[in-house]
Design a protein around this nucleic acid. Structure first.
Length: 490
RNA sequence: GCGGAAGUAGCUCAUUUGGUAGAGCACAACCUUGCCAAGGUUGGGGUGGCCGGUUCGAGCCCGGUCUUCCGCUCCA
């Protein structure tokens, strides 16, 4: 990251705090690491992004419906999904090289080494022992195993290890109402992804909304991950919000749907008027435990190209797993005629193509893309600067600022009439304090696309000055046309 | 989690080797001006991140701790 880009990122973080977009959580108590709160303008922007996504999914596609599943889910959900196994990795650090290893990777590497040296029996013994100890979560013995086999760090060459620590990426909490002899049964997790809430409701939704494959289920909501290191502002948080859509398809058609959604999702981003040059795809080579094909949509943040959205072809992994663990069939009967047999396709477990976007990351994307420290050359040749957020009108926190030029001579009264006319339709801001130029700049800083000024001429001919955020141009238009002008932009 | 840096008013920062804190901007009120930020007067706001130690006395020295940033690591 260049120093200049770093500064821009810092400026965005400061700006976000100063103008009421994002605050560190519990700041008066020194904050809570990697947790943030959204302020008055932040919550508007975030809500607008969520609504824009929601509408594009559930309103613009007849075959997509929404749900809102609970954050708590039956603990078996996470065994079925693979999260219990894949989300907790015992780690160990070498004190000399400061390098951290996953314990299983470290031991497997040693076993491979032994195999190459022809000591297959010893290698197998090591691996078996490791599996046993990992399953029992016996980290003391596991550490002893590392010492016994004199496993060393490939960088420092030493065996000066820290204790083994468990990094469980799922937050656990107790679910008091469940009575059981086994205390493990009382554990519930805060969901690490929203997707499982969709999978376990697959048949409920399909039947009640009478959906025919191919169809999708959309959901937005909070998810929680206990990241080892969570940093970079709201890019990686421990509590975050996802916007996901799981699209259920007939097996064999997942490839074309994967391609469809990959393109469709990029179009959504571009529909906000963001430059295509700031986006790129990143196809995954190393796939997750559930994935068949996967890619990220990456955006050029001030901290470099980073993932904002993932499109995954998840095969029938999730539904099959839930079928296995719940012992409830997760099948769909497809009445469509298969042209090769002349008969219906019949029963099958659908394949899934997922689109999953981080709402907080999208928020940061919008802010990063919008932020500009603009140098203005004035008429007399001197320069001035303004901080402006070029937020797309559709999702801007405030659409219209209504500003009487003076707070007397009846101008506030006219302005308030306009406010009353517009506020049922979109978010407005009213202010009569300070010089007009100063008020314009304050609106620039929160990304308000339109300002309207009521002056003495308004009283004579019912016209007002409308001032555009991006160009700073001003026009004289009829007072009565304001509301419709803005509605046309939404 | 490891290493490095930082933390003084809402923001940006001062306070020459330890002697109980200042400015600009911002904020509030009033006056003035009236179409692109910074006119005047007055005012509010700080146990110097937090805890402890050294000292007659600590924002400054020492230890711990928290948070943030950078690098490494992690990111299913």
């Amino acid at each position: 990251m260049s120093i200049q880009q770093e500064n821009i990122f810092q400026q965005i973080i400061s700006h976000a705090k100063e103008y009421g977009f994002v605050f560190p959580s519990s700041e008066i108590y020194d904050g809570l690491s990697a947790v943030y709160d959204y302020g008055p303008y932040g919550v508007e922007l975030k809500k607008n992004i969520r609504d824009y996504w929601w509408k594009s999914m559930t309103q613009m596609h007849e075959n997509i419906v929404g749900i809102d599943a609970a954050i708590f889910m039956h603990p078996t959900t996470w065994k079925a999904s693979g999260h219990v196994d894949n989300f907790s990795d015992p780690m160990i650090d070498n004190k000399d090289s400061k390098k951290r290893y996953r314990v299983d990777h470290l031991i497997e590497a040693k076993a491979e080494e032994l195999n190459n040296a022809g000591k297959n029996e010893e290698a197998n013994h090591l691996l078996n022992k490791m599996e046993e100890l990992l399953a029992a979560e016996n980290f003391t013995e596991l550490k002893a195993l590392i010492d016994e086999y004199k496993i060393s760090c490939s960088i420092s060459g030493t065996s000066n290890w820290t204790d083994i620590r468990q990094f469980n990426l799922m937050f656990k909490t107790e679910f008091g109402a469940v009575a059981s002899d086994n205390p493990d049964d009382n554990i519930v997790y805060l969901r690490p992804e929203t997707a499982q809430g969709i999978f376990v409701n697959f048949l409920n939704v399909q039947k009640t909304a009478r959906m025919k494959i191919p169809f999708g289920i959309a959901q937005t909501g909070k998810a929680f991950r206990n990241e080892i290191v969570a940093r970079q502002f709201i890019f990686r948080m421990r509590e975050f919000e996802q916007m996901e859509m799981q699209f259920f398809v007939r097996p064999g058609t997942e490839g074309e749907w994967y391609k469809f959604w990959k393109e469709e999702r990029l179009k959504w981003h571009l529909s906000l008027g963001i430059s295509p040059e700031k986006y790129r795809y990143h196809d995954h080579v190393k796939l997750a435990h559930y994935a068949k094909e996967a890619c990220d949509i990456e955006f050029n943040f001030p901290i470099g190209f980073k993932e904002v959205e993932g499109i995954h072809s998840r095969s029938d992994f999730d539904l099959t797993q839930h079928q296995l663990y719940s012992k409830k069939k997760q099948q769909y009967f497809d009445n469509d005629i298969d042209p090769t047999t002349g008969k219906p396709y019949g029963n099958y477990v659908p394949y899934v193509v997922e689109t999953s976007i981080g709402l907080d990351r999208m928020f940061l994307l919008v802010l990063s893309n919008a932020f500009e420290e603009e140098v203005i050359t004035k008429e007399d040749g001197t320069t001035d600067s303004r901080t402006v957020l070029h937020i797309p009108t559709k999702i801007a926190p405030v659409k219209l600022a209504i500003l009487p030029l003076l707070k007397k001579d009846g101008l506030p009264e006219i302005a308030k009439q306009l406010l009353d006319e517009c506020k049922p339709y979109f978010k407005c801001f009213y202010e009569e304090k300070d010089a007009i130029g100063k008020r314009y700049r304050r609106q620039d800083a929160i990304g308000t696309p339109f300002c309207v000024t009521i002056d003495h001429q308004t009283k004579e001919d019912n016209t007002v000055t409308i001032r555009y955020r991006d160009s700073m141009k001003q026009e004289r238009i009829a007072l009565s046309s304001i509301k419709q002008l803005i509605l046309n932009e939404l």
